[in-house]
Structures are given as structure tokens and as C-alpha cells.
Write a protein that binds this DNA or RNA. Sequence first.
DNA 1: AGTCGATATGTATATCTTTGCATATAGAAA
DNA 2: TTTCTATATGCAAAGATATACATATCGACT
Lengths: 126, 126
Amino acid sequence: MAGPKGSKYYNIFLKFKVWLENTDQESILGNGKFELLDFIDQFGSLKAAADKMEISYRKAWGMLKDAEEKLGFPLVEKQRGGQHGGNSVLTDDGKILIEAYKELLVEFDEAIYQITKKFFNRVNKK
Amino acid sequence: MAGPKGSKYYNIFLKFKVWLENTDQESILGNGKFELLDFIDQFGSLKAAADKMEISYRKAWGMLKDAEEKLGFPLVEKQRGGQHGGNSVLTDDGKILIEAYKELLVEFDEAIYQITKKFFNRVNKK
DNA sequence: AGTCGATATGTATATCTTTGCATATAGAAA
DNA sequence: TTTCTATATGCAAAGATATACATATCGACT
């Protein structure tokens, strides 16, 4: 969402972010990790998800490990071995989380729309 | 806002952030810089604002410079020299911006309250 | 038993930010 | 004209993050 045409805020956008945090103010799950979970769900493996996101497997694995450690419960059931090397499937907790997050984003988008409009109205009023 | 008592989300918080960004996806003004502006407004100098925030003058100066360069217009009128060394006063633009930002935060807080409640309801439903 | 590919993880390298230190300058007031 | 202190800015040191590289393991299917 940008400021109105012609105003000095025309090329400026109001952005927002939502994430889960623990009591130590550490980020547990944000947009990137939710996206990763979503791709794991869609493609059935951490590797495939990493490829889709164009990040290294090493990085994706680290993201997932970090989130699970901080949450204290697993988000993904990992299987290794087999001719295809293995696979990853979201746990019920993982599924519920990404569903809730998706709906949260929709609601947030709706809420921010009005707020943003008001913001740019205000700063351009003068 | 944390999850409900007894749930596995009890120590987990849903957080959000709002900031202004340019077309290059660079952050222009976020919470820290708004706070800095607010303190400059309250205390009349960049130095005093930096002290209040417990950051170095060097850092505060860099933050302000960065924001002004990216916005393309000044937020603060700086005066140097004089027995007291100088001072800083918000421009009209600067004042309007922090006012708008403050009200934005209030509205955001209200909006997120319901959304957050729903989120934790959802993930704890099962 | 051998193969194959994803999971698993340590370590090193590079990059990006932040912070600190040092130093110059303005200019009103004494 | 000397003093005082905030503004102004470069640069080095330190930290924090990210990225890359290397290497091991597992186990269903041939």
C-alpha cells in the first residue's frame, strides 16, 4: 500500500510483519518459516521445499530445526532412507499452525487496509 | 498477547511490526526511528534523544540521516553552534509523521487483539 | 548386498550490521 | 576572542548472520 498519487509519499509503502516469539524475545516462526512449512506440505520433502524457495537444503533444515526446538514440539515428521532418500510430512500441529497463520494473514491484510489509508490521508492532509 | 493458560502456546506471543519502505524494499522509518523522532521532539536535541534511548550519538545521527535521505525531505531542523552547542527541532513533516504513526499503532493494536485471539483459539482447538 | 537420494550436522568463509573511537566544525554567549 | 557543547562525519573493530562446503547416515527398493 503506497501513498496517494502526486504526494511525496507516492513511492513509499507501509509494510507489516507478524511472527511468533518466545519469552526471550526470540523469533520462533515468521513468514519465511511458514512458507517453508507450506512448501513441505505441498511437495512432501524438505529438499523439494528448499529448492522451491531457492535456498540451500542446509539453510532450510536449520530453519526447521530452530523452529521446532523453540516451540518444543515437532512440526514435521521426517523419514530418511528408502530409494527416494526419505521424505517429510507435516505433523497435525504443523498443519494447524500454517492454516491458522494463513487465515491470520488474510485478516491482517483486511485490517491494515483501512489503517494504511488513514495513515496516508493524515500525513498528506497538510 | 500469549496463548491461553495451560496450552502449549502459553509462553508464545504473536508480535507485529509496521514500517515505511521505499520501492527498493529498504526500510525508511520503523519503530526505532519513530521513537528517536519522538524523543527529539520531547527533548529538543539529537544528543538528548540518543541519551534517552541509550544509544550513541553516532548511531542516532546515522538513523536520522538515513531516514531523511530515503524520504527525500528533512524531518528535523538542526542548528549547530551556540553556547549550548546547538539543537534539533522537528519539521512540520516530522511532526505530522510521528503523530500519524502513533495513531497508527493504536489502531493496529486494536486490530491485532481480535486477530490474535482467534489465532490462538484456532491452534488450540484440537 | 548394493544403490540412491533425502535427511542430518559440523565447520569454515564471507558478508552485512552495528558499535565504538576519534576528530572537525559551528556560532551564540560570556 | 575564548569557551562550550551539539551537530557532523570518517574509519576501524567487533559482532552477528548468512552462505558454502564437506561428509555421514539411513533404509526401502532392486
